[in-house]
Amino acid sequence: MQSDERFTDATWPASPEKATLEGKNKYLGFWLFLGGETVLFASLFATYLALKDKVPNGDAALAKDLFELPLTFVATMLLLTSSLTSVYAMYHMKNNHFKQMQAWLVITVALGFAFLGLEIYEFNHYVHEYHHTFTSSAFGSAFYTLVGFHGGHVAFGLMWIISLMVRNARRGLNLYNAPKFYVASLYWHFIDVVWVFIFTVVYLMGMVG
């Protein structure tokens, strides 16, 4: 396979992620996986909606008491922006600009870590201020599972993108790793898609009551 050969700007294909059969397969397979992930998160959302505000007694915190606009807003902005920065990274990949791509990925990862940090702070806050824990009520279990699954996806995505960047730092772009970068960015967008529903369904609708 000559897929790790170096390309000039002129020989670099228009859609490097789909230029080889392996790339095409990876690309399609990953999209299908995202179709399955859609069902996975839908099941978690469904469980959350069925168990929302289901608590053992009157003292337990409900969605209305817990959530705050500013925190959610900042988290949302961080993740939405990281989606745009990963688009920039893919833009530079298509132009065969490896350095710029890496730079935008670094920003993406930084934003991702900020989001994750905020989420950890938030969970910590709920546990200590409201005694709203994973085991305190069905509501708590469902909330932490749904949002935690998303957070877990963020953490996995960060590890994935970082290891891609480190692995390919010295050798630059080729047709072997271009599909890898591309599907990692698809994954990152998907995480953002899920978050759009989380901030709407869990936080905003939770605050409305």
């Binding site: 179709g35 399955g36 859609t38 839908a42 099941s43 959302f45």
Partner: peptide, 12 residues
């Protein structure tokens, strides 16, 4: 993707 979404929406 939309099949997955449909299954998900029915579940919800």
């Amino acid at each position: 993707l939309f099949s997955g979404l449909a299954v998900g929406l029915i579940t919800v």
